[in-house]
Amino acid sequence: MDILRSLRAVSEASGTGVIDWSKAGEAAKAGTDPGTLDLTPADRRGYAADVRDARTRLREVAGVDFDVPDAIEVQNRHHWIDANLATFRSVMGPIEATTNARMPDLSRIANTGSMAFTLGFLARNVLGQYDPLLLADDPNADHGLYFVHPNVVGVAADLDVAYPRFRRWIAFHEVTHAAEFGAAPWLSGYLESRVERGVDELTAGGLDRAAFGELQTAMTAVEGYAELLMDRAFDDEYADLRRKLDDRRGGGGPVQRIARRLLGLGLKRQQYERGAAFFERVADERGLEAASAVWDRPENLPTSREIADPAAWIVRVDP
């Protein structure tokens, strides 16, 4: 990690765009320790077995036929930055194309620095990621499944839990997302359309509250169902893992808490909690198969009001 090199990269931001993406990536990696990726044969076998077993268990428990992506990568933090830089750039592209800053050079430096901070912070905190490749240039590209090995090992140690067990828990969580998108082929397009609508309206100087509301509600369903499915499918005790992970999501030092708030990670925690409560209620009353009906078609997604009132969703959808 070289903070001075990171700052120098930001100060050298150039070009005509709002963000110098090359320098943002360079600065993010310079300011982030990549972490070790010295995988033992047991590590490699462990990741492969965890993903394979998670897929089998989730198929059995949820009754959902799906597969995991071919691109399953065990990464260090720099690999994660490289893998996600294009995604950030795709989302920001329309906004960049219509932004006219009064002081473009200074604005570019500030924006490049902000993006470098965001990428670096996330790279140090993400454990695993199922990437549905929203807004990808190639719509036929295979989805991705990533594990940031230094973070998995480090957080297991911080939480005082056995690394192989914690790694397996993370694998189950990420494979549940693969199960969701596999069960709902329409889901990627649904999320993309809301992102595109929201971004288009922002570039026009407005705010499409409906698009962002639908996106937030859909992601609450995605995260909540994943929590439910993981808890039902995981083949070990998990109460201590759940408690410690929940504490971690809300903990950290002052800088971490501020960063999480600025990056909207508190909202993500609320999505976990609200979505999990909704699906737990549905599954307790009607069974897991009924809860899985949310992925049958877009109209079955709960509304924001129904997430707070699962009984209303049950009456409307009658799964």
Score class of each variant (00 low, 15 high):
D2C: 03
I3L: 15
S6G: 15
S11V: 04
S11H: 06
A13P: 09
A13N: 10
V18E: 13
V18K: 13
A30D: 14
A30W: 09
A30L: 10
P41A: 02
A42L: 03
A42M: 05
R45D: 12
G46Y: 03
A48E: 11
A49N: 06
A49G: 05
A49Q: 07
A49M: 04
D53F: 04
A54K: 09
A54H: 10
A54W: 09
A54P: 13
R55S: 10
R55F: 01
E60C: 05
A62Q: 06
F66Y: 09
I72R: 10
R77N: 08
H78L: 02
H79D: 14
D82G: 01
N84P: 08
L85M: 11
R89D: 13
S90N: 15
P94V: 08
T99D: 06
N100I: 14
R102Y: 12
P104I: 10
P104M: 11
D105M: 12
D105C: 03
L106P: 08
L106A: 15
S107L: 11
I109H: 11
G113Q: 10
F117M: 14
T118M: 14
A123I: 02
R124K: 12
Y130A: 00
L133F: 01
D137I: 07
D138E: 11
D142T: 00
F147T: 02
V148G: 01
P150N: 08
N151Q: 04
A157G: 13
D158L: 13
D158M: 12
L159K: 11
L159M: 14
A162D: 14
P164Q: 07
R165Q: 13
F166P: 03
R168V: 00
I170N: 04
A171L: 01
A171D: 05
V175W: 01
V175L: 05
T176H: 00
H177Q: 04
A179I: 03
A183R: 05
A183V: 03
W186D: 03
W186I: 00
S188Y: 08
S188G: 14
Y190G: 00
E192S: 09
L202F: 13
T203P: 07
G213V: 08
Q216C: 07
Q216E: 12
A218N: 04
M219P: 04
A221W: 04
E223R: 02
Y225W: 10
E227G: 07
E227K: 01
A233I: 10
D236C: 03
K244P: 00
L245C: 07
L245A: 06
D246M: 07
D247T: 03
R249F: 11
G252T: 06
P254S: 08
G264L: 00
Q271R: 07
R274S: 08
R274N: 11
G275I: 07
G275E: 13
R281N: 15
R281T: 15
R286W: 01
R286Y: 02
A291F: 05
P298K: 03
E299Q: 08
L301C: 04
P302A: 01
P302G: 00
T303E: 00
S304Y: 14
P310H: 12
I314Y: 00
V315E: 15
V317H: 01
P319I: 01
